[in-house]
Structures are given as structure tokens and as C-alpha cells.
Amino acid sequence: MAMSQIDSAAVKTAQPLVDSAVSVRNVSKKYGDVQALKDLSLEFPKGELTSLLGPSGCGKTTLLKIIAGLLPHDSGQIEVGGKTVTGPGPDRAFVFQDFALLPWANVLRNAAFGLELRGVAKSEREAIAEKYIREVGLAGFENKFPHQLSGGMRQRVGLARALSVNAQVLLLDEPFSAVDEQTRRKFQEDMLALVANEKKTFIFVTHSIEEAVYVSDQIAILLPRPSRVSEIIRPTSFRGKGVENIRRDSEYLDIVDEIWASLRSYVE
């Protein structure tokens, strides 16, 4: 079963001890003749941030969209909070790589859009959205339109929209890949605070090794052809030392080097 696909020698922590918010069991997915995912199993511990990291084409975005219910899978099972996933649900919220904001709606309506689709009354949903707009640092921009915002600010709107629906699981698809490096660093620091404060489960797709190690409680390394989880890494020592000390921590540096060593042969 799953163990045949997971290289067990490389798995640092066999199974997480905390209970899982999301379980992926033996999931396979084909695009025509291309095997995007094969018999993939992975647990996502509750209240933690798990990164899916790997070279392009390793199926990390496919896996995320399958968990979101946006893509059907061919076989296997996905459970979120104990319930089997058959499509999108109120227990998950998605943050998109290209922000996916409505260009014809202002920041307030965009942030409240998830609630609008759920039929929440206008005054109520706007009050909730305003709270999260403040939380992501966009107070005062409620009436601006997406084209009047920078890339980083647009993604903050996307984040506010995902937080507003109060889903237990947040799915982030390379959320910072379209913003500049300095904004990105700020985002990463904010992510850590968010994970600590919100008590939600985060699943985070990225192709940046440093970013994954910086923000994650657990890093799943995915390798392509055929797509599989090759390794699960759980940093232990530098969490809680303060955002400014992480990049100097020796465990942080070791893990970054180690991941690069195992991925470099897959980079074309």
C-alpha cells in the first residue's frame, strides 16, 4: 500500500502524533496518459502549517486542488475533519496564486465575496470582512479596486477573503509567488503570526525551499515521475525563537541545505 510509494528510510517522523485535520490516502490522478499523482498518502496535523514543496511538475498544485475539491481524483480518499471530500466545502478556503479577485468589485466586496456566496446578509458579511481587512493590514483601502492595488496588497485581499469564511483549513497555492521579494518576506512573517493566532490548519504550496522551511511546522517533499512524497521533515528547534532569528538558526540552514541536496538532481 502507501508505504511502497514512500521511501520509508527517508521519512524522519513516521506519523505525526497530533490528530490530523486533513488526511490524504492513496490518492491517484491521471491527466490523460500523464500520471499526475500516484497512490499518494499524507497527513496534515491540525493547527499546523504543512508545506508541499517540490520541483515543478511534481503535482503539488494538483494535490492542493484535489483537497480543495476543485479537481476530481481517480482513486483514493481524502478526509477533512473526518468527512470525505467530494467537492468544495465550507470547511476549506483557498488562496489563489493569481489572487483571483473580481476586477469589477472593490476590496470590501472582494473580501466579503465568500460570505456573499454563502448567503450572509450584507451588513453582517461586510462587518466580518472589514475585521479581516484590518487584520491583514489593508484598513482604509476598502473602497479601492484591485487595479489600484499592488500585487502584495491584492494577495492580502485574497487572504482576507479566505479568512472571512472562517474555514478550518486554509489552502494556499503559491500565494506569494507573484509578489516582490521584500513584500514576500513580510508575508512570511505575517504567516507565522497568523498560524499562531488563528488556530487553523494551513496547507501551503511553494517552490521556494527557504520559504517552506521558514514558515512550516511540517514540510512534505514531493518528487515527480511518478509523483510521490519522498520525505517529511519537521523542524523542531527554531520555532518560537522570534521571526528575526530563524534565518540564522543552524537547524534552519541545515534543513535548507539538505532539501536542496535531495532536489537538485530533479531540476532541469
Partner: peptide, 14 residues
């Protein structure tokens, strides 16, 4: 219509 905003709406249960 951009797929990502359709996906977005679906992921928020439209």
C-alpha cells in the same frame, strides 16, 4: 472567463 476566478467562486461554494 479566467478559470481562476471561476475556481475561486466554486471553492467558496458558488
Amino acid at each position: 472567463t479566467p478559470q481562476s476566478i471561476k475556481d475561486m467562486a466554486k471553492s467558496f461554494l458558488a
